[in-house]
Design a binder for these strands. Structure first.
Lengths: 166, 166
DNA sequence: ATCATTTTTCATTTATTACTGAAACTTTCT
DNA sequence: AGAAAGTTTCAGTAATAAATGAAAAATGAT
């Protein structure tokens, strides 16, 4: 496969993959593009290479910075900003995991916890509380596992271990 | 909190949660409704309780059956079909995980593997292959972890362990 | 302080995804 | 076989999410 074709496929696939997981296509594509670019890119580079508008490029670059997946870079003697992606896949995975955990999983755990106080003693109420409680336990456990596996000390260990296995 | 309010909140939250993760709102809501219903429901019950159309109810019930999250149930002396959700949260988590792994993760692992054969020796090509290879390793590892943690023997063990801890 | 360049915002447009509802189909009963 | 009850399909419509592009704001050089 030629580089050009491979890059194109990669960007498209990463975009589609993202949108299946609730991340918008452009954001994922911008990320993909930066991942496989050796040099930092300007907003215009991103616009051109992905055929997207300035507004779109800007919004998604900022979103990626929020997620700690992309950094702003200043080149000496250049006025405009450049962008480069974090390239270490463990770090990428960690940042994505922590961000989604914080934004989505934690609020769900909290809400499920609140259902403990549902009033009544009917069979209906008991069944409801059982389900809410079980889900609370499950999401709480998942939360704990993710917390542990994304802690920077664990990350450090895993990185070290994986470099030994190379 | 009153049961009625709690149920409503739960259904809405589960729907919103689902849509953040690429599962459509109605499907998640139908699932939520069945999860907290003590008796199996008919298509009409679902339509009424969620204010959705027959077509929508039918499509999403079938999708949930595909995902092994819901079973068809026949009541003696009743002609129409009833639906009930799998209630064990470990089993639910397993089925969701396996289904998404199969539909989305595995194809991505496969695609990333194909990039190994990208031709050329320039720095650009090397950088591309490095990234694709790293992502291939990472997604492959995630795939393996999920495979292990959703195998029925592990499930059996975890269920047994968690019932001992009750 | 001015002006040229770059970045950000946001009302409007466009694209995508999901839902509706009526018709077609299937099943089961008499 | 015909009718009644129930299920599925799918073309058309609606709702939602994302992108555009032009204007406003910010930046920084002179």
């Amino acid at each position: 496969m030629e580089l050009h074709e491979a890059r194109e496929k990669f960007i498209q696939a990463w975009g589609a993959f993202g949108s299946q997981w609730g991340i918008n296509r452009s954001m994922a594509q911008v990320h993909a593009l930066l991942l496989i670019s050796t040099e930092p890119l300007s907003t215009e580079d991103v616009m051109e290479q992905l055929n997207i508008s300035r507004g779109n490029a800007n919004m998604n670059l900022r979103a990626l910075i929020d997620w700690h997946l992309v950094d702003r870079v200043l080149k000496t003697g250049e006025r405009r900003e450049f962008f480069q992606a974090e390239k270490d896949v463990w770090t990428i995975a960690t940042h994505i995991t922590r961000e989604r955990k914080k934004r989505e999983l934690e609020p769900m755990v909290k809400l499920l916890g609140e259902f403990k106080e549902t009033s009544g003693h009917s069979a209906e109420v008991k069944a409801f509380k059982k389900m809410a409680g079980d889900l609370h336990d499950l999401t709480g456990r998942i939360d704990a596992v993710l917390e542990r596996s994304t802690r920077s000390d664990v990350q450090w260990f895993l990185k070290a271990a994986s470099s030994l296995l190379r």
